[in-house]
Each structure stands twice: as structure tokens, then as C-alpha cells.
Design a protein around this nucleic acid. Structure first.
Length: 462
DNA sequence: CCGAATGATTGCCA
DNA sequence: TGGCAATCATTCGG
């Protein structure tokens, strides 16, 4: 049956309601019209319009009365239930297959993602896990709290919008469903509409609304993804590591210069210390190695600084040991003496090393326990060469016989002296020094197996 | 604002 | 798979 025929029937129905005269008007038979005659169709529409225009209130009242009459007919309930049954059977047989709609995988994905991101799901604490994961991935503990809260705030915003919209949709859906149900219930008094059909209609409405909800979910997911990408893309929003973290990494790098390739365990340890991720540690070492290799000269100063730092740290450890053994000695240098070391700026710090074997970067066969010291000091060797003559570079300063009580603190930074840190072999060697070179600082071996001593001396300025 | 510094990424290689 | 080299993108300091 084509549309036109349907309209005809519909209109015919109206005419049957009480326009017997007009009902007899020349309506074309449904199948007698081939639908290709344009003039004929125009004529039909004209007729229909005419019919509509001539419907009066009176005729509508008549129709209502007729309808009421039918509803009150004694046979109506029995016929109605039969009609409902027939309709339901035919309706179910047609729509049965469509009823079972499998869960939309896309919707499931969206739901899962919203749940995982903390947009959907429980209100309190929602998103904190995702935010924490994101914050951890972004690295930098110092900034974590700021970025964390920033991320959470934005996520909360998205969440609120999502829930508001979702509520609106649900409300609209419920309202519309109620409206349609009332309408159908009302209509069910005059036409065969079974409760199951109403249920089906409700289902259709819900599906329609859920498709709208899916759009909402989709756009929410997009918003979360954008937020996440902005938040997580460290390349976009990277933060320099904290000074402390950089120091820790540099200290490791320069004290392992012969093999600046931390093991996984070492990386984990460093990552923990620096509050960064292991991959960030790897990145840092990768960058450091390549940049160091490219421009050793540029890193000389830095290398010196960390070499001295390592030495000083070792000195402190040794001083603490000395202090423990000579607890009552009033002249034992305290840790404050480290303040005298001002290597890079003043140039007054000087490190001398004897008998170090060539390029330790190439993996010289030096005792493993010494290797890191060698590494630490490798960069100052070249500088040392410039000072060797002035200090009597070939002299081996032995700590033997040095009395801690002689390490007068008033020597530190005194105007006429320069302060040097001398690294010398632990055993053997020439005990002599220049006349104007005085041991004024610490004299110790970093550990018992160490080949070297760190000896702080002053030398008269020239 | 510009250039240097720096953390991250990518592609290639052994 | 880890490391290297080149590069990108961002931060930082003068």
C-alpha cells in the first residue's frame, strides 16, 4: 500500500464517521491508481484538502459520539482483546528478532573508559586513581601535587558536566516515556494496544535516548582524552627536574664516569631518590652521555664541581670517623670546613692526583673500589697538569705522620694561601712538600682499600 | 624576546 | 632491547 492510498484510507475513515454523503465522493481505488499519473495525483490531493477544509466542529463532535458509541458497544471488550492478541502475535513475530539488541561494543568501551577515568562510577574519590597514575607518569614529585590537583579539578569539571547532562537526558527520557505511555494508555481505549506493546514502545524510546547518551559519552571521552593528553604529554608540558634530583643524577654520573650506565637496580634507586620514573632516569643518562661526549669541555666545570663534592662527601665521612675516634680533640676539623671549597668560582681549589692510569673512560684496569674515585677525578687531571709545576706535581703527599692537630682551621681561606685538595696514593711516595705548602686540612683514606688519600693543603699564593 | 638548557621522542643499529 | 644520534618542545635566564 503506498502512502497516498494510506492517506486515502485515513481520510476515508474520517468520512465514515458520519459523512456518508461525502464518503461517497469519488475517491480513487487504492490499486486502481498506478501512481504515475501526475495530474491525477494533484487532483487527489486537491480532493483531500477539500475534505479536510470542510470538516467542521460539528462533524468532529459527531465522530466523537460515534466513537463513544463503539466503545460502549457490548461486543467491544471481547473483540478488543482478540484484536490485541492478533496484533501482539503479529507484532512479536515481526519484531522479535529486533528486540534482542546485543550490547553495543562501542558503548561498552565508552562506559569502561568513563569508569576507568573516574568520570562515571562512584562520586567520591572518582578519578583519583587515574589522576595519580597520570601524575606519576608525568614525573616530578614537587609539581605532582599542583598538576595532580589541576588535573583533578578539570576532571571534576568534566564529570559534573557529564552528570548534569546525563540527568537532563534521563529526565527528558522519563518525561517523554511517561507522556507516550499516557498517550498510548489513552489510545488503548479505542485501538488495540496491549501492555506489551507499550513496553516495547518504552524500549524504543529508551534506545533512542541512549543513542543520544552515547553521543554525550563520546564527547565526554574526547574531553577526558584531551585533558589526559595535555596532562600526560610531558613533552608538551615538561618540568625540569628539581635541583636536588639533578644533583643526585650528576653525582652518580661523574662518579661512574668510566661506566656511566646504571644498572636497572641503580636506576630504580636513583629514580626513588629523585622522585622520578626509571625511564626518566634512563632518558637523563642517555642525554647526559651524549651531551657530555659531544662537549666535554663544557662539562669540565661541572665535572670538577661534582668531583670535589664527592671528595668532600668522602671527607665528611672520614672526618666523622676521625671525630669518633678522637672525640675529645679540640682541633678536629668540623664539617663546616667544607665551606672553604669553592672550586669552580674562585679557582682556588686544586686537585692533584698521582699515578692515575690514563683514560679511565676506556676502562683502565684499576681496582674496582678505586674506579669511581678515578672517575670522579678524571676531569680535573687536565686542570691539574696546569698546576703541577707550581705545586710540585711529582711530589707524593703522604698522609703518614700528619697530625690532625696541625690542621688548623685558621688556614682555611686565609688571604695568603690557596686551598687545595690533593689526592695522593695511600702508600709509599715522597713525604716532602714545598716549603710553602702546608697540610692544613683533612687527611684520610675514603676507605681502607683505597689507593688514594684526600689531603687538603694550603699553598702560599704566588 | 631570544638563545641556551633540558627532558622527551623517534628512528636506527648492534 | 638498550644505546646513540638527531630532533622536538618546553622551560629558564639574561
Amino acid at each position: 500500500m503506498d502512502d497516498q492510498a494510506r492517506i486515502m484510507q485515513s481520510i476515508g475513515g474520517v468520512s465514515l464517521a458520519g459523512h456518508s454523503v461525502q464518503g461517497g465522493m469519488a475517491l480513487p481505488p487504492p490499486h486502481g491508481h498506478d501512481g504515475t499519473d501526475g495530474d491525477g495525483r494533484k487532483q487527489d490531493i486537491g480532493d483531500i484538502l477539500h475534505q479536510i477544509m470542510t470538516i467542521t466542529d460539528q462533524s468532529l463532535d459527531e465522530a466523537q459520539a460515534k466513537k463513544h458509541g463503539l466503545n460502549c458497544h457490548r461486543m467491544k471488550p471481547a473483540l478488543f482483546s482478540v484484536l490485541c492478541e492478533i496484533k501482539e502475535k503479529t507484532g512479536l513475530s515481526i519484531r522479535g528478532a529486533q528486540e534482542e539488541d546485543p550490547p553495543d561494543p562501542q558503548l561498552m568501551r565508552l562506559d569502561n573508559m568513563l569508569l576507568a577515568e573516574g568520570v562515571a562510577g562512584p562520586e567520591k574519590g572518582g578519578g583519583s586513581a587515574a589522576a595519580a597514575a597520570a601524575a606519576a607518569a608525568s614525573g616530578g614529585a614537587a609539581d605532582n601535587s599542583i598538576e595532580h590537583s589541576d588535573y583533578r579539578a578539570k576532571l571534576t569539571q568534566i564529570r559534573q558536566i557529564y552528570h548534569t547532562e546525563l540527568e537532563k537526558y534521563e529526565q527528558a527520557c522519563n518525561e517523554f516515556t511517561t507522556h507516550v505511555m499516557n498517550l498510548l494508555r489513552e489510545q488503548s481505549r479505542t485501538r488495540p494496544i496491549s501492555p506489551k506493546e507499550i513496553e516495547r514502545m518504552v524500549g524504543i524510546i529508551h534506545r533512542k535516548f541512549s543513542s543520544i547518551q552515547m553521543q554525550l559519552k563520546q564527547s565526554t571521552c574526547e574531553a577526558v582524552m584531551i585533558l589526559r593528553s595535555r596532562f600526560l604529554d610531558a613533552r608538551r608540558k615538561r618540568r625540569n627536574f628539581s635541583k636536588q634530583a639533578t644533583e643526585i643524577l650528576n653525582e652518580y654520573f661523574y662518579s661512574h664516569l668510566s661506566n656511566p650506565y646504571p644498572s636497572e637496580e641503580a636506576k630504580e634507586e636513583l629514580a626513588k631518590k629523585c622522585s622520578i620514573t626509571v625511564s626518566q632516569v634512563s632518558n637523563w643518562f642517555g642525554n647526559k652521555r651524549i651531551r657530555y661526549k659531544k662537549n666535554i669541555g663544557k662539562f669540565q666545570e661541572e665535572a670538577n664541581l661534582y668531583a670535589a663534592k664527592t671528595a668532600v662527601n668522602a671527607a665528611h665521612a672520614a672526618a666523622a670517623a676521625v671525630q669518633n675516634s678522637q672525640a675529645n680533640s679540640p682541633t678536629t676539623p668540623n664539617s663546616g670546613s667544607s665551606g672553604s671549597f669553592n672550586l669552580p668560582n674562585s679557582g682556588d681549589m686544586f686537585l692533584s692526583m698521582q699515578s692515575l692510569n690514563g683514560d679511565s673512560y676506556q676502562g683502565a684496569q684499576v681496582g674496582a673500589n678505586v674506579q669511581s674515585q678515578v672517575d670522579t677525578l678524571r676531569h680535573v687531571i687536565s686542570q691539574t697538569a696546569g698546576y703541577n709545576d707550581a705545586l710540585g706535581g711529582n711530589t707524593m703527599y703522604s698522609p703518614h705522620g700528619l697530625n690532625n692537630s696541625r690542621l688548623a682551621s685558621n688556614s682555611y681561606g686565609s688571604p695568603g694561601f690557596r686551598c687545595y685538595l690533593v689526592i695522593c696514593p695511600q702508600t709509599g711516595g715522597n713525604e716532602e712538600m714545598d716549603n710553602d705548602t702546608q697540610p692544613t686540612g683533612l687527611c684520610f683514606a675514603p676507605n681502607e682499600q683505597s689507593y688514594f688519600h684526600f689531603l687538603m693543603v694550603t699553598k702560599a699564593k704566588q
